[in-house]
Design a protein around this nucleic acid. Structure first.
Lengths: 141, 141
DNA sequence: TCCATTATACTCGCATGCAAGTAAATTGCA
DNA sequence: TGCAATTTACTTGCATGCGAGTATAATGGA
């Protein structure tokens, strides 16, 4: 097994490369790449429940709890009780959080274009198609 | 920014999917996916220095130290002093480690085929080509 | 209605991943 | 040769990611 041929190795390193790239782009907002993407989801729609945010971000609750702790400490989000279902909480953007979330969305969109600029249009289409196939149909275990 | 279009999100989730898949395959050896790949590198060539192993696995020394600690605790590897350069250490596979490393290499190779079986041959070629381009040429920051 | 099941968000523990810094050894240049 | 710069492996601290388990609340079927 040579690493060049190992798709698990290649995906790990490509993920790390892309994540480092985005991290540098959003470091000007004092955010990690994951925090920036969570704020991006909230920029699209906030006041959703933690469970719903977890579904959209595809993160389990153990991971999301910690991320929300740090966003809350930074003053970007707040947890509010949900009268409709007292098990759940709604995640609200603060005034400052809303501004940062909009900036994060803009930076992420720009970073996407820049990161992929070395690929041809056909390669970009192929990449999205391949990832879509893998995420939908790759065997699970 | 919709998550479907965000390459950082897609790479993160594809990496996590592939990593979970490999983790399940190597769990029968009581290894994590990363530990299995490190043993795979040592199966190809052991008694290399920690620095050399880090270069091949593209891991920094802080991460590698912890992984080697756990492989050593499990009885698969040993650190030996390197008389040629007393700053460095050589990583040796134990007898048990050599057997597990061979098994790990086999499982990884099989898992590669199985994970990618939903892709056409052309898609596999395109995927490797795209990843290669990104890893060589994507902007760094 | 009652209770088992499910859903929600939480905690803990452990494994990466990486930035930053350290001590020891080596190297290379003046 | 002598010393500054570099290399090596290590530590600490923090951020994900996830398995496992918990307490509370909601739900659904007998």
């Amino acid at each position: 097994m040579q690493e060049t041929d190992c798709i698990f190795f290649q995906f790990a390193k490509t993920y790390q490369l892309s994540s480092r790239f985005l991290s540098q782009k959003v470091s000007e907002l004092n955010l990690t790449s994951v925090q920036a993407m969570i704020l991006g989801f909230l920029d699209a729609e906030d006041q959703i429940t933690s469970s719903e945010l977890g579904k959209r971000a595809e993160l389990d609750s153990a991971t999301l709890t910690g991320i929300l702790d740090r966003l809350e400490t930074a003053g970007f989000t707040e947890r509010k009780g949900n009268p409709d279902d007292r098990r759940s909480i709604r995640i609200h953007l603060t005034k400052k959080g809303r501004e940062i979330a909009r900036e994060a969305s803009r930076v992420i969109a720009e970073a996407n274009k820049e990161f992929l600029q070395v690929l041809s249009e056909e390669q970009k289409r192929n990449l999205h198609s391949i990832i879509s196939t893998l995420r939908l149909s790759a065997p699970r275990g």
